[in-house]
Computed example of a mutant assay.
Amino acid sequence: MEKAREVLVIGGNRYFGKRLIRRLLAAGDRVTVLNRGSAAPPAGARHLVADRDDENSLREALGSRTFDVVVDQVCYTPRQAALARRVFAGRTRRYVMTSTVEVYEYEDSPAALVPESAVDPRTVAVDLELPWDDPEFLDSHYGEGKRQAEAVLAADPAFPYVAVRVAHVLGGDDDFTGRLAHYADRIRTGAPIAVPLVNRPATYIHVEEIADFLAWAAGADFTGPVNAASHGLLSTEDLCEAVAARLPGGRVELRTVEVGEVSPLSFARSYGMDNTRAGRLGFTFGEVHQWLPKAVAETLGGGD
């Protein structure tokens, strides 16, 4: 009988993180969840309380524990990555970091989907002295923080890391982002939806699909960056059409703006990711247009 894997999930208390934990438990893994104690993990998982930004706190909580896999759901900065690399070197056989499509924020290629090679973390400059502890700075440098975090992990060839570059996630009745609700509010009332003058489509992934992907990546043996996105692109118009289908009597009015804030999930640059590598490694993605109506229904509920 195969021995159960020891898996540590850092963060993971909400949205696709909690779905990941349930999948790991269902697969027979022994799952430990580490967080600051703000919420208990799903039933069946063990719980460690520590501040992942405090190396002493993290080492004390971990003790002598080792893991087959670590899935880090909350690594946002190169400082956090550097600390994690120090602590988990020799303590795990596999380290999976959830990264983001935002690492490609400078790779605007509207004519083609962007492959992982467009951002090689081994060539990304790292600046640990930037104000990464400032929430406002971190919020406005989200993609850069993730890009540099990947670079820190990639700098040690012996560290077995994976960076899952996650597309924009939709679906679930617990979507805390409010992005689809933004569209529903405006369509329901006929209020204008602000979009950029040049409005590019993007790749997406369903909340259940990214949980499946992370669980699969935890058990695979590849390393390095990998894109996680469903097949197909969605435009702002596609999103509006799907939301309007749940709101009889609603009205869609797109209004272009040259400057100022635009609606969420409307982009002046391309955020299309090429998922070929994951497919070659053995993961089968769904089609975004097939699951979009379901995602909208889950998020908005009962036709609301």
Rank of each mutant, 00 (worst) to 15 (best):
F67V: 06
L25Q: 06
Q73W: 10
K294D: 08
L62V: 12
T100K: 05
A278I: 00
A4Q: 13
F88C: 04
S109L: 13
G232P: 02
A220H: 13
Y142E: 05
V31T: 07
G286Y: 08
V243A: 11
G282A: 10
S99C: 10
R59G: 07
E261Y: 01
V288S: 08
L265H: 07
F222Q: 08
F285G: 01
D173H: 12
E6H: 06
K3M: 14
V119G: 05
E241D: 15
L20K: 08
A81G: 09
P131T: 01
A163Y: 01
G143P: 03
S109Q: 15
V103L: 01
E136H: 10
C240M: 02
I210T: 11
P157A: 11
R186W: 05
A81S: 06
L292R: 12
G28P: 13
P160C: 12
P157Y: 09
E241T: 14
A112W: 13
E129S: 14
Y204L: 02
H141S: 01
G272Q: 10
P264L: 02
I10R: 14
T276F: 05
G63E: 06
D127C: 03
L292M: 06
E287K: 04
A45D: 05
G178L: 08
D29S: 08
T98L: 15
A27R: 15
V257W: 00
L48K: 07
F222G: 11
L300F: 11
E241L: 14
L170I: 14
H231M: 05
A155V: 01
I193E: 01
V69T: 15
L8W: 08
L265R: 03
G272C: 03
P121G: 06
T299C: 09
V164I: 08
L214G: 08
D274A: 13
L25M: 13
E60P: 00
V70A: 03
R186I: 09
R165F: 07
R19G: 07
P110C: 07
E253R: 15
L130S: 00
T189L: 12
S230L: 04
L24M: 12
R46S: 14
L25K: 10
T98Y: 03
A43W: 11
N199Y: 00
A40Q: 12
P135E: 06
